[in-house]
Design a protein around this nucleic acid. Structure first.
Length: 495
RNA sequence: GGCGGCGUAGCCAAAUGGCUAAGGCAGGAGUCUGCAAAACUCCCAUCAGCGGUUCGAUUCCGCUCGCCGCCUCCA
């Protein structure tokens, strides 16, 4: 089995071979922190978190860098455009760095809640201005960039491969007439590496060989990625909306400065839509991660993300998230059924129980293979998830309604349960009851006590009282289930 | 206008040049149960349309229709 990754550069799935065997240098474009993280961010960062987790699961040593863009991009291409962070900060009468701090915290809070592993390095753009200046200077020295009225522009025509990622030709873009020639630009497609601050009212500005100013948007990723990961990265991820111009420009700057290939595999994440339209900060049609976690729970959102392929666009609807919640509940119940089975008194081993156990063990192995094959095929999480459901069904078949356990059954169920937990873990999910019971150490014992009392009522066939307890608990989002081995409780999904 | 992608059952969502087109949700029938819940069993699609290539296409090619993204900040 080999991992294959769809590379935007070639538009094909390619076998993944890192530059240095066993090690993966990976960079993902981080957020611009001037507003709350939304579901689009959730999809991107959960998807790449799954990538990191899977690579590590395969035994690769991953160094994962994801930047924080805390220096504003211009709101438009014209030289007079405002810096978004500066603009928002001015509106709120706070310093830009205050604003940026607020939303950086929000960002990590959201990704932590979604159980995304922290990047190994989270470099901030403002902390890497010297590296950017060095890089820009190299480009000027090499003749790939030129200075014009205190601005430094990248000369797009100096790079033969410009457009190789987004498959665009310069002439076509010019023909569109939508890219206006900026003041002092040689070519309409030239992009800013450094912008003069004079006359822009920018609060965030730095000294440079070209005067006071601030960096262009694209240069930060090149500078930070190469600082920590070297001239050639194994993997670079981003949302599809960054292919052009951002990623294209990263390639141009980096390769012209180093004369080395910048990225071996480019991965791009599909867009989150809302009502058939892209969810984005600028459109204002976004739902924040915090808000949606409040409605559905973080794990359900995460499951919603991995239920479709990372490259597919997905529509964000309440219904689809609710479906994800119900589906996740099925996995939770299966794990709980396994645990319950393992706690049952030992009973006789019959031919039937023996063959059922053997079948479960067999299925566990083949479903594990299905999961890995899915993941190996460009991180096909929907296939991987279907393997998880397979494991749930197989487990339920022997564990859901049994009144006692058998030694063979226990071995098989233990194996299936462990497999389920392990593979869920690769997707960053944990459905074991302990994961949410831990927050309250008294509720569990109290519920157990209540069910014991209820069992006595049931002995006397006092159905009204017994049902009243069950209904009452349901109102508290605790689901009681009567089974051959006694009643059990679980928390409902609440949705 | 240019570039790219998508269109699979009521909904979500995979795979595949030929054997039963995964899985989940919803729905239907049954088993179990005092009832309920859960679980289990069974049922529920000819793959947007039209042409072409092929012994054979949902899968490859072309066209049409519809939708989305990028070409401006965006994950």
């Amino acid at each position: 089995m080999t991992l294959r990754i769809y590379n935007t550069l070639s538009r094909e799935k390619e076998p993944f071979e890192p530059l240095h065997p066993g090690r993966v240098n990976m960079y993902v474009c981080g957020p611009t922190v001037y507003d709350y993280p939304h579901i689009g961010h959730a999809k991107t960062y959960v998807s790449f978190d799954v990538v990191v987790r899977y690579l590590r699961y395969l035994g690769l040593d991953v160094l994962y860098v994801q930047n924080i863009t805390d220096v504003g991009h211009l709101t438009d291409d014209a030289d007079s455009g405002e810096d978004k962070i500066g603009k928002r900060a001015a509106e709120r009468r706070v310093q830009p760095m205050q604003l940026v701090e607020t939303y950086t915290r929000e960002f990590f809070q959201a990704t932590d809640a979604l159980n995304c592993l922290r990047p190994d390095i989270s470099p901030r753009a403002t902390g890497h201005i010297p590296e950017m200046i060095d890089l820009i200077q190299r480009l000027v020295d090499e003749g790939h960039a030129y200075v014009s009225e205190g601005n430094v522009y990248f000369d797009v025509e100096s790079f033969r491969d410009y457009g190789k990622l987004s498959r665009r030709r310069l002439e076509e873009q010019e023909a569109s007439g939508r890219v206006e020639a900026g003041a002092g630009k040689r070519n309409a497609s030239d992009f800013a590496l450094w912008k003069a601050a004079a006359g822009t009212g920018h609060m965030m500005r730095w000294n440079s060989p070209w005067g006071g100013g601030f960096p262009g948007w694209h240069i930060e990723c090149s500078a930070m990625a190469m600082k920590y990961l070297g001239e050639t990265l194994d993997l670079h991820g981003a949302g599809v909306d960054n292919v052009f111009p951002h990623n294209e420009d990263e390639i141009a700057q980096s390769e012209c400065a180093t004369h080395a290939p910048f990225v071996r595999y480019w991965m791009h994440n599909g867009t989150v839509l809302v009502g058939g339209e892209k969810m984005s900060k600028s459109k204002g049609n976004f739902k924040t991660v915090a808000e949606e976690i409040g409605r559905f729970g973080a794990q359900v959102l995460r499951f919603w993300v991995v239920s479709s392929h990372y490259r597919s666009p997905i529509d964000y609807t309440d219904e689809s998230v609710r479906d994800a919640g119900r589906a996740l509940e099925r996995l939770q119940i299966a794990v709980q059924n396994a645990d319950r089975y393992l706690g049952l008194p030992v009973g006789d081993e019959t031919d039937a129980s023996r063959s059922a156990a053997e079948e479960l063990t067999l299925q566990t192995e083949s479903l594990r293979r299905l999961f890995l094959e899915g993941m190996d095929d460009d991180f096909n999480t929907p296939v991987a998830v279907s393997a998880l459901f397979g494991l749930a069904s197989e487990t339920n078949r022997v564990a859901a309604t049994a009144a006692h356990r058998s030694p063979v059954g226990a071995r098989a169920v233990t194996g299936a349960r462990e497999q389920l937990s392990e593979l869920l873990g690769v997707l960053g999910l944990d459905v074991s009851p302990a994961s949410d019971a831990a927050e309250d150490d008294i509720a569990g014992p109290v519920l157990d006590l209540l069910l014991q009392a209820r069992a006595a009522l049931r002995q006397h066939r006092d159905w009204p009282a017994s049902d009243a307890i069950r209904d009452g608990l349901k109102g508290l989002n605790v689901i009681v289930e009567d089974r051959p081995g006694g009643a059990t409780w679980r928390r409902g999904s609440g949705i």
